[in-house]
């Protein structure tokens, strides 16, 4: 794929999407809004896994830190939304560095476990200090980004567009290639003279920053911050599924997978409780038979 061609077409797609509020019901806009924030989660995860090769089982650790930082600042100090979101992103970078330390030492399932533990610790911490954090089910926020569906949609779309272009650009740049090389074979990449540690640290910070920002934005869309939306393991699972479903190492596929998952979950709502079952089944069949994900299948056909 040529860079010169991809970027204009991406911008074109984004502009087309920006026209949706003129023709589509508020309900679909609401779904897409949620899908766009989830898309940023999934793209951030893909940067870390697909490119830096780090199996992060706990994307919701980074998301949750950003979201709760922003939520607490807004709830207790009524900071303006933008200040809360930026603070959330900054705290997430610190969380990302915290995760990066073991990542540089550990491999495979061990690092995976540490990320899982990080989520559980955060969850325990939030529940333990329920008096401040609102505990198991959450904290309501005095401010929201917007009340009407159209504005919320445009904010989310713009946020996803900017984040997506940056993440995608990064993945296609020299930095992305070095990351990919060090993700696949760190020793060799190091032997070639690349500073693997520095690049991996950068990947952690960038992934954390966008996860945190998106987490913070999401809670100001919903007007509530809760363990169930931004911390729970299930949230992380959804992000991972979205990225794998859409196609790893593509960044854009992750976004596609996220929107698909959210849309599918809602389309199957009439099935009631069985809807999660069906969505999981579809995802399972997809990864088993089309392991490259949607975008992988689209770009490369079936070859691997």
């Amino acid at each position: 794929m040529l860079k010169s061609k991809t970027f204009p077409s991406l911008v074109g797609i984004l502009l087309l999407l920006a026209l949706l509020p003129f023709g589509v019901s508020g309900y679909i806009l609401g779904l897409l809004t949620l899908g766009y924030y989830t898309a940023v989660f999934a793209m951030s995860w893909d940067l870390l896994f697909g490119f830096a090769g780090e199996v992060n089982f706990g994307p919701s650790f980074l998301i949750g830190v950003g979201a709760y930082t922003a939520g607490l600042l807004n709830h207790y100090y009524t900071w303006p939304i933008w200040a809360c979101v930026i603070s959330g992103g900054a705290m997430s970078i610190i969380a990302g560095l915290l995760l990066a330390v073991p990542a540089l030492r550990l491999k495979g399932p061990y690092f995976g476990l540490v990320t899982l533990v990080a989520v559980l610790m955060l969850q325990n911490f939030i529940v333990l200090f329920a008096g401040i954090t609102g505990g198991e089910i959450g904290l309501d926020l005095p401010d929201v980004l917007a009340v009407d569906d159209g504005s919320n949609y445009w904010i989310a779309l713009a946020f996803m567009g900017v984040s997506g272009l940056i993440l995608f650009g990064l993945s296609r740049s020299a930095v992305g290639l070095i990351l990919q090389a060090s993700g696949q074979d760190a020793v060799q990449a190091g032997a070639l003279g690349f500073n693997v540690t520095k690049h991996k640290l950068a990947a952690f910070c960038i992934s954390a920053l966008f996860s945190g920002l998106s987490g913070a934005m999401l809670i100001f869309y919903e007007g509530t911050v809760s363990v169930g939306t931004v911390v729970d393991i299930a949230v992380g699972v959804q992000v991972i599924i979205a990225a794998v479903l859409g196609g790893r190492r593509t960044i854009l596929g992750a976004a596609l997978g996220a929107v698909f998952l959210i849309g599918m979950g809602e389309m199957l709502r009439p099935l009631g409780e069985a809807s999660t079952f069906v969505v999981s089944a579809i995802a399972l069949v997809t990864i088993m038979f089309v392991p490259g994900g949607f975008l992988g299948a689209l770009l490369h056909g079936e070859k691997r």
């Binding site: 019901s25 309900y27 919903e222 007007g223 809760s226 939306t229």
Partner: peptide, 14 residues
Amino acid sequence: SAADAVRAFQRASS
């Protein structure tokens, strides 16, 4: 989940 409930509420309204 509070978030699912908010989503449902928005859907119910709009």
